[in-house]
Amino acid sequence: MSEWEVHAVKYADRNARVRGDSFVFDDRHDVAHPMDYFIWVLRQGERVILVDTGYDAAEADARGRPIQLDPRSALAPLGITPEAVETVIVTHLHYDHAGGLHLFPNAQLHIQAAEMAYATGPCMCHDTLRMPFSSGHICEAVKRLYSGKVIFHDGDAEVAEGVTVHRIGGHSRGLQAVRVLTSAGWLVLASDAAHFYENFQSRKPFPIVVDMQDMLEGFTTIERLASRPELIVPGHDPLVMSSFPRDKADHIVRLDLGPKLSSA
Rank of each mutant, 00 (worst) to 15 (best):
D30A: 14
A62T: 01
V233W: 05
M215C: 02
A226R: 05
L93W: 02
L42M: 13
G100H: 07
V233A: 05
A193V: 10
L257C: 11
T53D: 01
V150G: 07
S73Y: 09
A177Y: 06
S135E: 14
H153D: 04
G162M: 07
A157S: 14
S2K: 14
E5W: 01
E46Q: 13
G136L: 07
R47F: 05
A193D: 08
L216I: 13
H137P: 00
P234C: 01
A8P: 02
I49S: 09
F196C: 08
K260G: 13
I49E: 08
E223I: 00
E3N: 05
G218I: 08
S242Q: 14
G136C: 10
S262A: 14
K204V: 00
H97Q: 14
E158F: 03
S191G: 15
E46A: 15
Y95G: 00
M215A: 07
Q44M: 10
D61P: 01
S227M: 04
G100W: 02
R19P: 00
H166S: 10
G155Q: 11
G136V: 05
Y118R: 02
V178M: 04
L257V: 14
E86Y: 00
D214G: 02
E59T: 11
H97G: 04
A117H: 06
I151L: 08
Y197C: 01
P66R: 04
V24G: 06
I111Q: 08
V31R: 11
G169L: 12
I222T: 02
N106Q: 13
R246K: 15
L216W: 03
P259H: 05
F133V: 00
D36Y: 10
V165E: 11
